[in-house]
Each structure stands twice: as C-alpha cells, then as structure tokens.
Amino acid sequence: MTAIRVEDLRKSYGAHEALRGVSFEIGEGEVFGLLGPNGAGKTTTVEILEGYRRRDGGTVQVLGADPASAGSRWRAQIGIVLQSSSLYPNLTVAEHLSVFGGYYPKPRPVDEVIDLVGLGEKRDVRVKSLSGGQQRRLDLGLALVGDPELIFLDEPTTGFDPAARRAAWSTIRDLRSLGKTILLTTHYLDEAEQLSDRVAVLREGRIVTIGAPAELIGATSETEIRYRRDGELVVLRTSEPTRVLHELTAQALAEGRDLEGLEVRRQTLEELYLALTAAEQEQ
C-alpha cells in the first residue's frame, strides 16, 4: 500500500519556482528521508502534503486523500512536527499532551507519550522553563499523541546536541517498529542515512537522486584510488577497481617503484551528497 504519492509537484512563490516537478512514493510503514540544503524545497513539499500550502501543479495523495481538501477524519490520522516549535509557555508538558490529545478520537495515554519522548522528569514543568531541545521533544510528543498512522517530521533534530539527537533517533526507530509511516526532512546526511529506508535528495526544487542509502552509493559511486608519483598526487576513479588496481601494482612492480601513499576507498554517501548539492554553486 502507498501512504503518499506525489507526481510532478510544482509550486512557485511569485517568480521563484520552489518546486519544479517533484515525484516520489512512500509505502506504508516506510521511513522516507527528504534530504537537501536550506532552500531546496523540503518544507514547501512537506507543508503541501500536510495541507498547509496550496500547490500550483501536479497530483498529491496522502492516505488516499488530497490534502488540499481533506477534513478532520484525515487529520486524525496524521501527526505533524513543524520546522519551528510552537507551544503555550504557561502550560506544562502533561497539560499540553492532554490539551492536544483531546482533539483526537483515540489519543494515546499522556504518560505513555511522555515516556516515548523521554520527558518523564519534566512532566509537570511549564514549557517556558524547558530547554530548546526539550521543547522540540514535546513537539514530537504532540505529533504522536493522536496515535497517527503517518508522521511528518520537518527537521526534527536541528539544533540538538549529539546526545539529544541520538535519543530522538531512537524514538523515531521505535515509531518505525510500531509500523508508522514517517516522512522526515533533514539537512544532516547521517540522520537520513541512519533512519531512512529510502532517501530522496532535493536540490533547487528537483529530486536529483532517490533510493535506499546503500543503493545510492552502490549505483552512483566509483572507487577512488590515490597514490603519489614523484611527489604528485594521482587520483583515479573507476568502476572496475580490481582490474585497475591490478594493472597499477603490476606496472609499479615491473618498474621497481613504490606506490607511495596508496589509498583505495569507496565514495561515501556524504561525498555523493556534497557532489550532488554542490553543483548549484558551480552553475
């Protein structure tokens, strides 16, 4: 079953084309990472899928409905973490969850959600006394309190310290094991790689590559061979590393030379990502 289907999605702000034909599908129970630098169009895409923004073109189906016209029953099945936090300063963590839980037909118990997002010690603390990271965790809790099938997370860990990021990752993995469908945006590559079943890289309103993290590396990357010859760095890229390396070493041995500083390595997803997203600066 498909949870989300997006075809040729387009959106302009005035003369600026923010989305120029974006297409992808997300299966039920899948964690899908939308990765891209600032301004790539991640938030625009996600907010169209959440029903906040109108699209200019293309078709969009989210849980079988068009978000532009879907009603309360549809909203009860989705959970949203917006890019920026928004809470009532004078309400406590537990009060927030019971306020927002009250909007849903079958809310999860407040304390269960508090445990899930790791705010147990802050249960009765007002939001204005929480740290930014704790507020962000409460944002996540509010997205989960209605027990949704589909969860949108727009940069859920931006600004977190490494420990808080790991904690959030483990919460997201828990959700995945509960069978939830998750669409996550991030500009952290390791986050997309760690959490997602599939990743799409978005750049200037277009998807430049899409697939499982391992596939992306396998499909596009070449092996890099580096060594020094007379002090000069030589870099070879090849999709046939075994043959090239064999030839190289055979020749060096025959000539009685050493391959100084020899390194053989695969391109990482990070380098792929940088290469894909750096193209915009060169244009």
């Binding site: 906040y52 029953r73 949203i80 917006l82 928004s86 909007y103 849903y104």
Partner: peptide
Amino acid sequence: ESGILKRVRGTPLP
C-alpha cells in the same frame, strides 16, 4: 506568530 494557530490547524479540531 508563535505558530500555535498553525499547529491547531493541523489537528482534527475544526
């Protein structure tokens, strides 16, 4: 401006 109306809009509360 703090985004609370937007958040409420994202829930099933009409």
